[in-house]
């Protein structure tokens, strides 16, 4: 089943926040992550899809059906909440059996199905435990089982990992991905953690002020962000404001940079974007006549394990690079073919 937003508008009463003209489709079996700062509208989008909130305009489709006017209880979507929202008075299997119970499945059958589902998420040993006896990760697994047991048409995950500590987060991330792949269910993941989004999602949508700024595969988002916001949100980046000086050359605070300027003409304001690992350290002094070869003074030099992250002071700006080299670096080359120009900030 697909889940789709079509030109959805929703503004919270008494404020300008909400979502504006939101259109997006989650394909069958696809996992789409929605990321953005808090207040960017990502949780609102999830609530609209789940049916907790009614849009003021636009359509919501599940499969071929328009469900805009359908209540949450009839949409048949599994939702995993940030704090799991397990019912405190029901044990693990009773929580999982809840959606079956409200649909009138007889006791022995729903119990068997719930236990089977709990086994699938690795909770077969704790079927009778009350939620307050379970750790965060275990509650998470129960919540996931509960959201999947009634064969929902889609799965919605609202910041499912934010309440877990770092080590467990990676483990549960892989677990969620495994279960999602196994059941082949269309999934929307809302998160503020870009690393989480990049590592599990088929496609990532970046939201800002209620709008989707860019949607694409993690690779596309990382390599070709549409603007400085997306670039800054996904991974580390160098972003230098600059002015096009002539075709193939942009003047910035770190000096002239050679790059493809395309249709831009002299005097256009741009933002020059380069990922730190795209920058090449130079073993020799830079040639002054070559734009993009730059010398600088080391501001900081941190060893992060797989790479070293070096900040160089250049002119009035700063160049950040990541390298595997262990030798001192005081000059770099910015490869023109890797540089991308982004629109200036309003």
């Amino acid at each position: 089943m697909t889940m789709a937003f079509e030109s959805i508008n929703y503004t919270y009463p008494g404020s300008g926040t909400g979502v504006h003209d939101l259109s997006m489709t989650v394909g069958p079996g696809e996992l789409v992550a929605l990321i953005g700062a808090s207040g960017s509208g990502k949780t609102t989008a999830l609530k609209l899809l789940a049916g907790f909130t009614r849009p003021q305009a636009g359509l919501i489709r599940i499969g071929d059906r328009d469900v805009t006017e359908v209540t949450a209880e009839e949409r048949r979507l599994g939702v995993v909440f940030q704090n799991y929202a397990l019912f405190p008075h029901l044990c693990a299997w009773e929580n999982v059996a809840f959606p079956l119970r409200v649909r009138g499945v007889p006791h022995p059958i729903r119990r068997a199905q719930a236990i089977q589902m709990l086994e699938r998420v690795g909770m077969g040993a704790r079927v009778g435990s009350m939620p307050h006896m379970l750790s965060g990760g275990q509650q998470q697994r129960v919540a996931l089982a509960r959201a999947l047991v009634f064969d929902p048409k889609g799965l919605l995950l609202d910041e499912p990992l934010s309440a877990l500590d770092a080590a467990l987060r990676v483990e549960m991330r892989d677990e969620i991905l495994r279960v999602q792949r196994q059941s082949g269910i269309a999934t929307l993941l809302v998160t503020h953690d870009q690393e989480e989004a990049l590592s599990v999602a088929d496609r990532v949508a970046v939201m800002r002020e209620g709008r989707i700024v860019q949607i694409g595969t993690p690779r596309v988002l990382y390599d070709t962000p549409v603007d400085a916001y997306v670039a800054g949100f996904v991974g580390q980046s160098n972003l230098w404001p600059g002015i096009v000086e002539r075709e193939g050359l942009v003047g910035t605070s770190v000096g002239p940079i050679a790059c493809v300027t395309g249709t831009r003409t002299r005097g256009d304001a741009v933002i020059v974007f380069v990922r730190p690992e795209w920058i090449e350290p130079l073993a020799r002094s830079p040639r002054a006549e070559v734009a993009g070869e730059i010398a600088g003074e080391t501001l900081s030099d941190r060893f992060l394990g797989p790479v070293r992250r070096i900040d160089l002071a250049v002119g009035t700006g700063m160049v950040r690079l990541e390298t595997h080299l262990r030798t001192p670096v005081s000059a770099v080359r910015i490869p023109p073919e890797r540089v991308r120009l982004l629109p200036p900030l309003e």
Binding site: G51, A72, R75, G78, V79, V102
Partner: peptide, 9 residues
């Protein structure tokens, strides 16, 4: 909200 999404009237 959870009860709602799980189909409870």
């Amino acid at each position: 909200a959870a009860a709602k999404s799980l189909g409870a009237n």
